[in-house]
Computed example of a mutant assay.
Amino acid sequence: MFTIDDLQKLYNSSNYIVFFGGAGVSTESGIKDFRGENGLYKEKFKNYRPEDILSKSFFFNHTKDFYEYYKTHFLNPNIKPNKAHDWLAKAELKGKIKSVITQNIDGLHQMAGSKNVIELHGSVHRYYTVKKNQPIDGLPIIIKTEGIPKDTDGDIIKPDVTLYEEPLDTKVVSNAIMEINKADLLIIAGTSLTVYPAASYIQYFKGENIVVIDRMPMNFKNFLQGNVGEILSKIKI
Protein backbone atom coordinates (compact mmCIF):
# COMPACT_ATOMS: atom_id res chain seq x y z
CA MET A 1 0.00 0.00 0.00
CA PHE A 2 1.36 3.41 -1.03
CA THR A 3 1.66 5.92 1.84
CA ILE A 4 2.46 9.56 2.57
CA ASP A 5 5.95 8.46 3.61
CA ASP A 6 6.41 6.84 0.21
CA LEU A 7 5.43 10.08 -1.51
CA GLN A 8 7.84 11.99 0.73
CA LYS A 9 10.70 9.68 -0.32
CA LEU A 10 9.84 10.12 -4.01
CA TYR A 11 9.61 13.88 -3.56
CA ASN A 12 13.01 13.99 -1.85
CA SER A 13 14.75 11.85 -4.48
CA SER A 14 13.24 13.49 -7.59
CA ASN A 15 14.83 16.33 -9.51
CA TYR A 16 12.12 17.29 -12.00
CA ILE A 17 8.63 17.07 -10.53
CA VAL A 18 5.65 18.02 -12.68
CA PHE A 19 2.16 18.44 -11.25
CA PHE A 20 -0.89 17.66 -13.40
CA GLY A 21 -4.13 18.83 -11.78
CA GLY A 22 -7.85 18.83 -12.39
CA ALA A 23 -11.00 20.24 -10.83
CA GLY A 24 -10.41 18.38 -7.55
CA VAL A 25 -7.47 20.66 -6.81
CA SER A 26 -9.82 23.65 -6.46
CA THR A 27 -12.77 22.03 -4.67
CA GLU A 28 -11.13 22.76 -1.30
CA SER A 29 -11.39 26.45 -2.24
CA GLY A 30 -15.15 26.10 -2.59
CA ILE A 31 -15.26 25.68 -6.37
CA LYS A 32 -17.51 22.88 -7.56
CA ASP A 33 -16.04 20.22 -9.80
CA PHE A 34 -17.88 19.02 -12.88
CA ARG A 35 -18.43 15.27 -12.55
CA GLY A 36 -18.40 14.82 -8.78
CA GLU A 37 -21.28 13.82 -6.57
CA ASN A 38 -22.36 17.46 -6.20
CA GLY A 39 -20.71 18.67 -9.40
CA LEU A 40 -21.95 21.25 -11.88
CA TYR A 41 -23.08 18.58 -14.31
CA LYS A 42 -25.73 17.47 -11.79
CA GLU A 43 -27.48 20.84 -12.05
CA LYS A 44 -29.46 22.18 -14.99
CA PHE A 45 -29.72 25.90 -15.76
CA LYS A 46 -32.91 27.11 -17.46
CA ASN A 47 -33.40 23.51 -18.64
CA TYR A 48 -30.00 23.55 -20.31
CA ARG A 49 -27.32 21.03 -19.43
CA PRO A 50 -24.02 22.62 -18.30
CA GLU A 51 -22.23 20.54 -20.95
CA ASP A 52 -24.30 22.36 -23.58
CA ILE A 53 -23.94 25.80 -22.01
CA LEU A 54 -20.16 25.48 -21.96
CA SER A 55 -19.94 24.97 -25.71
CA LYS A 56 -18.87 27.22 -28.55
CA SER A 57 -22.23 26.98 -30.31
CA PHE A 58 -24.14 27.88 -27.14
CA PHE A 59 -21.88 30.87 -26.55
CA PHE A 60 -22.67 32.30 -29.97
CA ASN A 61 -26.34 31.28 -30.11
CA HIS A 62 -27.30 32.10 -26.50
CA THR A 63 -24.64 34.57 -25.40
CA LYS A 64 -26.75 36.25 -22.71
CA ASP A 65 -27.65 32.94 -21.06
CA PHE A 66 -24.02 31.80 -21.33
CA TYR A 67 -22.82 34.86 -19.44
CA GLU A 68 -25.51 34.57 -16.80
CA TYR A 69 -24.33 31.03 -16.07
CA TYR A 70 -20.64 31.90 -16.42
CA LYS A 71 -20.80 34.83 -14.00
CA THR A 72 -22.70 32.80 -11.42
CA HIS A 73 -20.42 29.76 -11.47
CA PHE A 74 -16.97 30.99 -12.50
CA LEU A 75 -16.52 34.55 -11.25
CA ASN A 76 -16.68 34.33 -7.46
CA PRO A 77 -14.36 37.06 -6.12
CA ASN A 78 -14.23 35.41 -2.68
CA ILE A 79 -12.49 32.26 -3.91
CA LYS A 80 -8.95 31.96 -2.56
CA PRO A 81 -6.11 29.45 -3.06
CA ASN A 82 -6.12 26.44 -0.74
CA LYS A 83 -3.42 24.24 0.82
CA ALA A 84 -2.71 22.51 -2.49
CA HIS A 85 -2.05 25.76 -4.35
CA ASP A 86 0.08 27.11 -1.51
CA TRP A 87 2.15 23.92 -1.23
CA LEU A 88 2.82 23.83 -4.98
CA ALA A 89 3.92 27.47 -5.02
CA LYS A 90 6.34 26.88 -2.13
CA ALA A 91 7.67 23.68 -3.68
CA GLU A 92 8.29 25.54 -6.95
CA LEU A 93 10.16 28.25 -5.03
CA LYS A 94 12.37 25.51 -3.58
CA GLY A 95 13.11 24.27 -7.10
CA LYS A 96 11.32 20.94 -6.68
CA ILE A 97 8.12 21.54 -8.65
CA LYS A 98 9.20 22.56 -12.15
CA SER A 99 5.75 23.18 -13.62
CA VAL A 100 2.05 22.96 -12.87
CA ILE A 101 -0.19 21.74 -15.67
CA THR A 102 -3.81 22.48 -14.88
CA GLN A 103 -7.17 21.78 -16.47
CA ASN A 104 -8.66 24.52 -14.27
CA ILE A 105 -9.45 28.04 -15.43
CA ASP A 106 -9.67 29.76 -12.04
CA GLY A 107 -6.14 31.22 -11.86
CA LEU A 108 -5.66 30.09 -8.24
CA HIS A 109 -2.21 28.64 -8.89
CA GLN A 110 -0.90 32.05 -9.97
CA MET A 111 -2.73 33.71 -7.09
CA ALA A 112 -0.86 31.42 -4.69
CA GLY A 113 2.46 32.33 -6.29
CA SER A 114 3.19 29.60 -8.83
CA LYS A 115 5.06 30.99 -11.85
CA ASN A 116 5.35 28.16 -14.37
CA VAL A 117 1.65 27.34 -14.85
CA ILE A 118 0.40 25.76 -18.05
CA GLU A 119 -3.35 26.31 -18.37
CA LEU A 120 -4.71 23.71 -20.78
CA HIS A 121 -8.20 25.18 -20.87
CA GLY A 122 -7.44 28.89 -20.58
CA SER A 123 -8.33 31.32 -17.79
CA VAL A 124 -11.27 33.37 -16.54
CA HIS A 125 -8.77 36.19 -16.07
CA ARG A 126 -8.16 36.63 -19.83
CA TYR A 127 -10.57 37.85 -22.52
CA TYR A 128 -10.59 38.82 -26.18
CA THR A 129 -12.93 40.43 -28.68
CA VAL A 130 -14.67 38.04 -31.07
CA LYS A 131 -14.47 39.90 -34.40
CA LYS A 132 -11.16 41.71 -33.91
CA ASN A 133 -9.64 38.78 -31.98
CA GLN A 134 -7.79 41.19 -29.71
CA PRO A 135 -6.96 40.72 -26.02
CA ILE A 136 -8.98 42.99 -23.77
CA ASP A 137 -9.31 43.71 -20.06
CA GLY A 138 -12.77 42.22 -20.16
CA LEU A 139 -13.39 41.20 -16.56
CA PRO A 140 -14.42 44.67 -15.29
CA ILE A 141 -16.79 45.03 -18.25
CA ILE A 142 -18.33 41.61 -17.65
CA ILE A 143 -18.84 42.26 -13.95
CA LYS A 144 -20.74 45.51 -14.54
CA THR A 145 -22.67 44.40 -17.65
CA GLU A 146 -26.09 42.83 -17.15
CA GLY A 147 -26.45 41.40 -20.63
CA ILE A 148 -23.85 40.66 -23.28
CA PRO A 149 -20.49 42.33 -22.58
CA LYS A 150 -19.06 44.28 -25.52
CA ASP A 151 -16.14 46.63 -26.13
CA THR A 152 -16.55 50.28 -27.13
CA ASP A 153 -16.95 49.23 -30.79
CA GLY A 154 -19.76 46.81 -29.98
CA ASP A 155 -17.56 43.74 -30.41
CA ILE A 156 -18.64 40.84 -28.17
CA ILE A 157 -16.16 39.88 -25.47
CA LYS A 158 -15.35 36.19 -25.02
CA PRO A 159 -13.51 34.49 -22.15
CA ASP A 160 -10.16 33.00 -23.16
CA VAL A 161 -11.29 29.54 -22.06
CA THR A 162 -11.59 26.42 -24.17
CA LEU A 163 -15.24 25.52 -24.61
CA TYR A 164 -16.65 22.28 -25.93
CA GLU A 165 -16.30 22.16 -29.75
CA GLU A 166 -13.06 24.18 -29.53
CA PRO A 167 -9.53 22.79 -29.88
CA LEU A 168 -6.87 23.31 -27.26
CA ASP A 169 -4.13 25.82 -28.03
CA THR A 170 -1.37 23.92 -29.83
CA LYS A 171 1.46 25.87 -28.20
CA VAL A 172 0.04 25.25 -24.73
CA VAL A 173 -0.37 21.54 -25.49
CA SER A 174 3.19 21.34 -26.81
CA ASN A 175 4.53 22.94 -23.60
CA ALA A 176 2.54 20.56 -21.42
CA ILE A 177 3.76 17.48 -23.29
CA MET A 178 7.35 18.73 -23.15
CA GLU A 179 7.14 19.19 -19.37
CA ILE A 180 5.57 15.77 -18.80
CA ASN A 181 8.25 14.22 -20.98
CA LYS A 182 11.03 15.81 -18.90
CA ALA A 183 9.60 14.81 -15.50
CA ASP A 184 11.11 12.11 -13.32
CA LEU A 185 8.10 12.29 -10.99
CA LEU A 186 4.59 13.11 -12.20
CA ILE A 187 1.98 13.93 -9.56
CA ILE A 188 -1.56 13.68 -10.90
CA ALA A 189 -4.20 15.11 -8.58
CA GLY A 190 -7.88 15.97 -8.49
CA THR A 191 -8.71 14.56 -11.90
CA SER A 192 -10.56 11.44 -13.00
CA LEU A 193 -8.44 11.40 -16.18
CA THR A 194 -11.61 11.24 -18.27
CA VAL A 195 -11.33 14.68 -19.92
CA TYR A 196 -9.73 14.30 -23.33
CA PRO A 197 -7.47 15.20 -24.97
CA ALA A 198 -5.86 16.45 -21.72
CA ALA A 199 -5.83 13.03 -20.06
CA SER A 200 -4.04 11.49 -23.03
CA TYR A 201 -0.92 13.60 -22.38
CA ILE A 202 0.06 11.25 -19.53
CA GLN A 203 1.33 8.81 -22.14
CA TYR A 204 4.28 11.14 -22.79
CA PHE A 205 5.69 10.57 -19.30
CA LYS A 206 8.98 8.68 -19.57
CA GLY A 207 10.07 8.91 -15.94
CA GLU A 208 10.09 6.36 -13.16
CA ASN A 209 7.14 7.26 -10.94
CA ILE A 210 3.57 8.47 -11.24
CA VAL A 211 1.64 9.32 -8.08
CA VAL A 212 -2.13 9.84 -8.21
CA ILE A 213 -4.13 11.71 -5.56
CA ASP A 214 -7.92 11.87 -5.64
CA ARG A 215 -10.94 11.70 -3.37
CA MET A 216 -12.38 8.83 -5.40
CA PRO A 217 -10.65 5.42 -5.67
CA MET A 218 -8.51 5.01 -8.79
CA ASN A 219 -6.63 2.01 -10.08
CA PHE A 220 -3.01 3.15 -9.80
CA LYS A 221 -0.14 1.49 -7.96
CA ASN A 222 1.00 4.73 -6.31
CA PHE A 223 -2.40 6.07 -5.22
CA LEU A 224 -3.40 8.22 -2.25
CA GLN A 225 -7.08 8.77 -1.53
CA GLY A 226 -8.20 12.03 0.02
CA ASN A 227 -8.28 15.79 -0.46
CA VAL A 228 -5.34 17.05 -2.50
CA GLY A 229 -4.46 19.96 -0.22
CA GLU A 230 -4.57 17.87 2.94
CA ILE A 231 -2.27 15.23 1.45
CA LEU A 232 0.25 17.58 -0.16
CA SER A 233 0.53 19.74 2.96
CA LYS A 234 1.88 16.68 4.80
CA ILE A 235 4.87 16.51 2.44
CA LYS A 236 7.82 18.43 3.83
CA ILE A 237 9.25 20.85 1.30
Rank of each mutant, 00 (worst) to 15 (best):
I141C: 01
I177L: 07
K64A: 08
M216A: 13
G113Q: 06
K44E: 09
T145L: 02
E28V: 08
P217L: 01
G30E: 06
Q134S: 10
I187E: 04
Y69M: 04
D52V: 09
S55G: 06
K71G: 01
A91M: 10
L7W: 09
M216N: 14
S174I: 09
K64D: 10
I97M: 11
K64R: 12
M111V: 15
L232T: 10
E179Q: 15
I53Y: 04
Y48P: 00
M218V: 04
D106Y: 10
E51I: 07
I4R: 11
D214A: 09
N76D: 10
V212G: 04
Q203H: 11
I213E: 03
F19C: 11
P140A: 04
D6V: 10
P167M: 08
S200G: 07
A89M: 07
A189P: 03
N38Y: 12
P167R: 05
S55Y: 04
V130L: 15
V195I: 08
G122N: 05
G22A: 05
Y204V: 00
E230T: 15
F19Q: 05
I202H: 00
T170D: 13
E68I: 09
L163M: 14
F2E: 02
R215G: 15
L193I: 05
L10C: 09
I141Y: 02
E166L: 08
E28D: 15
P140N: 03
N209V: 05
I188T: 06
D52F: 06
F205V: 00
S174D: 15
N227D: 14
K98L: 11
K182P: 01
N133A: 11
S57H: 07
G39P: 00
P217C: 00
V212Q: 03
A89C: 07
N209H: 12
N219H: 08
S174R: 15
K64Q: 12
K221Q: 08
H62E: 10
G229R: 00
T129K: 05
V172L: 07
P135L: 05
R126E: 12
